[in-house]
Design a protein around this nucleic acid. Sequence first.
DNA 1: ATCGTGACGAACG
DNA 2: CCGTTCGCCACGA
Length: 106
Amino acid sequence: MTEKDSFYQRVYEKVKEIPKGKVTNYGTIAALLGNPRAARAVGYALNSLKKTDLSEIPWQRVVNAQGKISFKGDTFRANLQKEILEAEGILFDHEESIDFKTQGWP
DNA sequence: ATCGTGACGAACG
DNA sequence: CCGTTCGCCACGA
């Protein structure tokens, strides 16, 4: 394929497959791509996403293994993500974490 | 090719 | 229980 088969591309496609009302974590995405240890690379891919087509990818449905938002310095985006997830029907518990048992994907 | 970095994860003390 | 450390992978310079 002459197209960019970058790991990023696969991550983006995978994230797009996440249905509305569900969420997943970086480790799961990496595992679906065949690299269960590449969770960091997945996060890196989404980070790079902010400088590409951020609006066409449901990056907000991807959180860490704790079911929470782990941003590093962009609290603005973290807050935005929570708002979007709530708007999509995601429920947060009293700790603002998501229950993967009921809302996790796949 | 080597070094440093990063929206992670799991283990350890 | 919490904070810290190590390991993992991919990308940019």
